[in-house]
Computed example of a mutant assay.
Amino acid sequence: MRFDVYTPLVLSLLLSVVAPVLAGRVAPALAARVLTSAAVVTAAATTWTLILLVAALLGDAPPVVREARENGRRLVDPVPVLVGVAAGVALAAVVWRVQRTVRAERRTRRALRRLCAGQPADTELIVAASEVPQAFAIPGRPGRILVTSAMLSALEPGERRVLLAHERAHLAHRHGPLVTAATLAAAANPLLAPVRSAVVFLVERWADEQAAAAVGDRRATARALARAALSAGRARTACALHFTDRAVTRRIAALQVSPPPQLWSAATAVLALGALPALLAADATGDLLGLLFGVLS
């Protein structure tokens, strides 16, 4: 209990260090799925450890202390009271952050649904008259692609094919739920923020690779990314495919070389790293229950 309950927090830091390395060396589809899974499990484990630390305060509750003394049993303090109180404050912050993130996600989904209101059910592409170059996928049934007139004007016909293929990849592979899961994990455990950033980068890289495969030209895909990035810079606003991201140069460079390998061994190691906090949290749970029931029995 004394060590297992704290170790998941340390492993969160380790996962955050590993995430950017995996994002740069492993195929984006595999890396995105693995990092998201590891982040969700780790966030759940660290949240549970906070609950355990708060629950450990039960051992210091007056009725428990009194009964233990009447039975002649020695009290074992699994965690200091100060640590338990700090865990309670942290747990309240986790609940607040997750609730805020969920509300933000719901607001975004409602706004996206309003953009699609009044469109025929079989309409995939929605073109909006706007001077701001934007394009993004709108998940749903059916999924939609919203593109502004400024975005279409900034790209040549071949580059528009890249744009649409990229957004279709987001819809086909359900990148929205992946990013949402990573975002919720980072809300529950702020130490996982770098993992969330890596997942956001990876789903864009994943869509880039799908677009390059669809048009059959990696260099043409890179040129479309570069042109859209320039358009975003002139507009000073968010553009299609997260082009204002600092990672755009890495994405363009990645399209100049062969796709990264699958590297299942690295992916398996990261999955094991993500599973370890859950195992340690389970072990700490057993230790705490043993202490509490030992006192009460």
Rank of each mutant, 00 (worst) to 15 (best):
V83F: 15
L91M: 08
R110W: 03
R109G: 03
R66M: 09
V102S: 09
V85F: 04
V83L: 15
L91H: 05
A128H: 11
V54R: 14
A121F: 03
R107F: 03
V64T: 09
V54A: 10
P78I: 10
A111S: 12
R97G: 12
P120Y: 12
R114E: 15
N71Q: 15
R109A: 15
R103T: 15
R100T: 12
N71K: 14
L112Y: 10
L82E: 08
L82G: 12
A92R: 12
V95K: 08
A87N: 04
I126N: 11
D122H: 10
V83R: 09
R97A: 15
G88Q: 02
L75H: 12
P78T: 10
R69Q: 11
V102W: 12
A90V: 01
G72K: 09
S130W: 07
V79H: 11
V89F: 15
N71D: 12
E124Y: 00
D60N: 07
E67V: 08
T108M: 14
P78R: 09
R114H: 14
R103N: 10
G59H: 01
Q119R: 11
V76S: 07
C116M: 13
R66S: 13
C116Y: 01
A111G: 07
E67I: 05
V65R: 15
R109E: 07
L75Y: 08
L125H: 04
W96C: 10
R66I: 12
T123V: 04
R103D: 14
R100I: 02
L115F: 02
T101I: 01
A104Y: 01
L53W: 02
V102C: 07
L53H: 03
V95Y: 02
V83T: 15
V94D: 09
R110E: 10
R74L: 13
A93D: 10
G84P: 13
R103M: 07
I126V: 14
L75C: 10
A61S: 13
A56Y: 05
V95G: 05
V102F: 07
L75D: 06
C116W: 03
V83S: 14
A68Y: 03
L75T: 03
G59R: 00
V94C: 14
R110K: 06
L112H: 14
P80E: 06
R97C: 09
R66F: 08
L115G: 02
R74C: 03
R113K: 04
V127Y: 00
S130K: 08
V65H: 01
P63Y: 06
G59Q: 00
A61D: 06
L115I: 00
E124K: 03
G72H: 07
V81A: 11
A68C: 14
L125S: 04
T108H: 10
G118N: 05
P62C: 11
Q119C: 03
V54E: 13
W96P: 05
T108V: 13
R100P: 06
A111I: 01
A117I: 04
V85K: 04
P120W: 13
V102N: 07
R69C: 04
A111W: 00
A61M: 05
Q119M: 11
V64H: 08
T123N: 02
A86D: 01
A61N: 02
R66D: 11
G118V: 00
S130E: 06
R73L: 07
Q119A: 15
P63N: 08
G72R: 09
P120I: 11
W96I: 03
P78A: 14
